[in-house]
């Protein structure tokens, strides 16, 4: 049993953070996050403006250093300052921020091709991204500068898909998308999780119930890990990692609330 649990901890947790404090300048954007995310899980993050959602995502992408705390992301110890380790960590995530990170003077196709070369993705992966985001040939041949906000967003998402990431970090993926684009993204999220990827999705909207229940609800939806706010960090840490060691089905999802830079357990 003990061994099984240990193996579970080592193998199955895509993200595991304890009392994580991240500073932006000298402002504690994250004031003590305790969060466990299992592989294949979809975690929706909700919270008010300035709650630290974007910082949490950027940290998980390996883009930020932390002030105190411990944990691992995709098996990389966050305390490991080695730049090669950091680079390997970063190549395994797909991060979509507020910015689309596209060059307005290049066409969508050229942007995606450049992104693919930067992370050495194969052309097939690029093609898959193009198909999933329903990017037409016409759209691909257009300069990004003259695309609409929603179209740019879809191109940017295709840029995430082509990385075939193990950990998806999506910051409001629905932003400026029409309803067709939204359902397209929702389907993409569920499919990615079913294929074994882990997703951390920031959203402002109330998460639709059918999304949270789109997967077998009998397997520990929501109560697996996240619990405890920062001030109770030490005791929460124990319960969070030890309490509910139930493997979740790929594609199960839950909602986590972020406020004041700390995660609090939900449901």
């Amino acid at each position: 049993m003990g061994f099984a649990k240990l193996a579970f901890l080592a193998m199955e947790l895509a993200v595991s953070l304890r009392s994580l404090v991240v500073l932006l300048g000298s402002f504690p954007a994250l004031s003590g996050v305790d969060l466990d995310i299992q592989s294949g899980e979809i975690v929706y993050v909700r919270g008010a403006n300035g709650a630290g959602k974007t910082t949490l995502l950027r940290f998980c992408a390996g883009l930020l250093n932390f002030y105190s705390g411990e944990g691992q992301v995709l098996g990389f110890d966050i305390r490991d300052a080695n730049s090669d380790t950091r680079q390997m960590w970063r190549t395994q995530v797909g991060y979509l921020g507020h910015e689309t990170r596209l060059y307005p003077d290049l066409t969508a196709q050229e942007n995606l091709a450049f992104l693919a070369k930067l992370c050495r993705a194969e052309m097939a992966a690029l093609q898959y991204g193009v198909e999933r985001l329903e990017l037409s040939q016409e759209l691909l041949a257009t300069r990004v500068g003259s695309l609409s906000a929603g179209q740019r967003r879809r191109v940017a998402l295709a840029g995430v898909v082509l990385r075939s990431p193990k950990l998806w970090l999506l910051d409001e993926p629905h932003a400026s998308l029409d309803s067709r684009g939204r359902s397209c993204v929702d389907q993409l999220i569920v499919d990615a999780a079913k294929a074994g990827a882990t997703l951390l999705v920031v959203t402002h909207e109330p998460v639709a119930h059918e999304l949270l229940e789109a997967v077998p609800a009998d397997l520990s939806v929501g109560e697996s890990a996240a619990s405890g706010s920062a001030t109770a960090g030490s005791e929460a840490a124990g319960s969070a990692s030890g309490g509910s060691a139930i493997a979740c089905a790929p594609g199960s999802s839950r909602l986590v609330e972020l406020s004041g830079g700390a995660v609090k357990g939900n449901r």
Binding site: V21, L23, S26, F27, P28, S31, G32, S229, A230, T231, E257, S259, G260, G261, A262, K264
Partner: peptide, 24 residues
């Protein structure tokens, strides 16, 4: 001074987190 400000900011932020947790 910067560290002091940081610690206070951290405390304020944690209080904020606790308050929110209480509300919900």
């Amino acid at each position: 001074v910067e560290q002091h400000g940081l610690k206070q900011a951290l405390r304020r932020r944690r209080e904020e987190a606790q308050r929110e947790a209480m509300v919900s």
